[in-house]
Amino acid sequence: MRGEVAAVPRGWVVAFYGSTIGKKIVMAATGVILVGFVTGHALGNLLVFSGPAALNRYGELLKSSVVILWIVRVTLLAAVVLHAHSALSLTRLAQQARPSRYAKHATQASTFSSRTLRVGGVVLLAFIIFHLLHLTTGTVHPAFSPTDVYGNVLVAFSIPAVTVFYLVAMLALGLHLHHGIWSAFQTLGLNHPHLERFRRALATVMAVGVSLGFSLIVLAIAFQLVG
C-alpha cells in the first residue's frame, strides 16, 4: 500500500520475485536462455537449404537422447512460463500504477521495439502454442510425419495463411530481441559505457539475424525455391 512502511517478507525467493527488480531479473535470465534457444534453432533450421537428408538427420540427432530432450523441453517450458508470468505481472503493475492516462503523451527516447514489446510478446506466445501444435506434435498439421521434418515444413508453408502468420511472428520476434537483448544487459547490471555500443549492436545483429534466418526459410519454401 502507498505510504506503508515495508515489513520484511519471509524467504528470499518470495522477497526476490516479489519485487519489481526481481521479476525483471527473472525475465532477463529466462530471456537469455530463450535467446540461446532461438539462435540455435535458427542455425539448425538453415539446414533446410542443404536438402532433406541433412535436415532430417539433424531432427533425429535432437531426439537421440530422450533424457536430454526432456531436460531441454522442461527448461524451455519453465523459461517461457516464468518469462511470460513476470511480463504479465509487470504489465499489470504498470497499468495499476497509472490509472488515469495523459491527454497528450509524447514519447521521446523509447524505441519502437520497446513500445511494441508487450503486444509482440502476446503474438509470440500465441505463435509458440501454434508452432508446437503445428510442427512438434503435428496436431494442427494437415500431413504430419514424426520422422520427415523436411516434408513437414514443405507442406506447412504451402498454405499462405500459415506462411503469413509465421512471418508476422518472426517480425515480432525480431522486435522482441532488439529490445530484449539490450534490456537484459541493463537488467543484469552490465552497462559500463564501454559496453553500450556493443550491446546495442549485438541486439540489432541478433534481432535481424534470427528473424531474417527463420523468415528466409519460410519464404524460400513458400515461393518454392526449396524442395
Binding site: 519485487s19 525483471k24 497509472r98 520497446s114
Partner: peptide, 25 residues
C-alpha cells in the same frame, strides 16, 4: 538497495522495463 526497492514497490509505482524515457525527461 533491498530496502529502497521494497519501499518503491510498496508505493505502487510500476516496475522498470528499460524504456529509457525517464533519463530523457
Amino acid at each position: 538497495a533491498v530496502n529502497m526497492v521494497r519501499q518503491m514497490d510498496l508505493e505502487t509505482f510500476g516496475g522498470c522495463t528499460n524504456f529509457g524515457e525517464c533519463s530523457e525527461a
